[in-house]
């Protein structure tokens, strides 16, 4: 899918598949195009090109949308004058869902005691739980959650992690977006990483951890840098030397061919968060 707002290319050629039975993380910094992508998925935003389907059916054509796909997009889609129970009653009526289900999801999300209070007085954490209650209303096979961990306290974060894994364990498809890898690191089985509207990584977390870097240095550091850049590698300056992606064997051979004598050649396993930041790093520069 692609989406352009005038000259701004918010999302460019984003293509991915989310599998059932697993929690998929949809990651990227703020402004990377995550929310726009999710809204295109749900028929709320019309893609400039491309399409998205749930098991082959576009969201707009689903016979029972809320019972097929459960969605929590942002923590503010409430009329503050309605109580939580009445808020859910509006959409249960629209989707033909039995009213008894409202009590079930209120209990499940832990806001049953506050269900008859106006939503206007809710904390961000309680709004997140109400958003999740809306997502679960139709007992859907697919869950699409945009930043569901935002605003939750540590106990709430643990609760939602367990809930998401439980739901995936039941064979459901769970897609969770976040701008922080650490937030979802322990929850997700697979990640799709978005930066500046493009997918920069798709796969398991292990793939991501497997990304290797080599720390390399030479007396003539300028010549080494030139050789590495000439080979099309992304070079990061550190105190100890130059960090480049690749294996020691590759980088050593490259330096040998360029006639640069190395003073250091050391493999380095980058941390998950570092790899993530590197992948999306260019996006942050643009945002600033």
């Amino acid at each position: 899918m692609s989406k352009h707002f005038g000259a701004v290319r918010a999302v460019s050629d984003v293509t991915f598949t989310v599998e059932p039975g697993r929690v998929t993380g949809f990651l990227g910094p703020n402004g990377a195009g995550k929310t726009t992508s999710l809204r295109m998925l749900l028929g709320l935003v019309r893609p400039t090109s491309g399409s998205a389907t749930f098991g082959g059916t576009a969201y707009r054509d689903l016979a029972r949308p809320l019972s097929t796909v459960g969605t929590a997009l942002e923590a503010s889609s409430f009329n503050p004058g309605r109580t939580a129970r009445r808020h859910l009653a509006v959409y249960a009526a629209a989707a033909g869902i039995a009213r008894s289900r409202i009590d079930e999801v209120l209990t499940l999300t832990g806001i049953a005691e506050a269900a008859d209070r106006r939503v206007g007085g809710y904390s961000l954490g309680m709004r997140q739980r109400l958003g999740l209650a809306f997502a679960l209303l139709g007992d859907p096979e697919v869950l699409v959650l945009d930043e569901p961990i935002n605003g939750l306290d540590p106990e709430g974060i643990r609760w939602i992690r367990e809930l998401l894994q439980h739901l995936a364990g039941e064979g459901r498809t769970v897609l969770v977006s976040s701008h922080l890898l650490s937030e979802v690191q322990q929850t997700v089985d697979r990640v799709v990483i978005l930066s500046r509207g493009r997918i920069v990584h798709e796969g398991s977390l292990d793939d991501l951890e497997g990304a290797q870097r080599v720390l390399v240095n030479a007396q003539d550091r300028a010549a080494l840098r030139a050789a590495l850049l000439a080979a099309g590698l992304a070079v990061v300056d550190t105190d100890a030397g130059l960090a480049v992606p690749g294996t020691p064997a590759d980088i050593g051979a490259l330096a040998y061919r360029a006639g640069v004598a190395l003073s250091l050649l050391q493999p380095e396993r980058a941390g998950l968060e570092e790899v993530f930041l590197e992948l999306v790093g260019s996006g942050e520069g643009a945002a600033a």
Partner: peptide, 16 residues
């Protein structure tokens, strides 16, 4: 009021 409180989102999710 649906536009103001962004409830068009859940409304159109329940009835696309």
């Amino acid at each position: 009021s649906e536009v103001r409180y962004q409830t068009l989102t859940p409304t159109f999710l329940a009835q696309p």
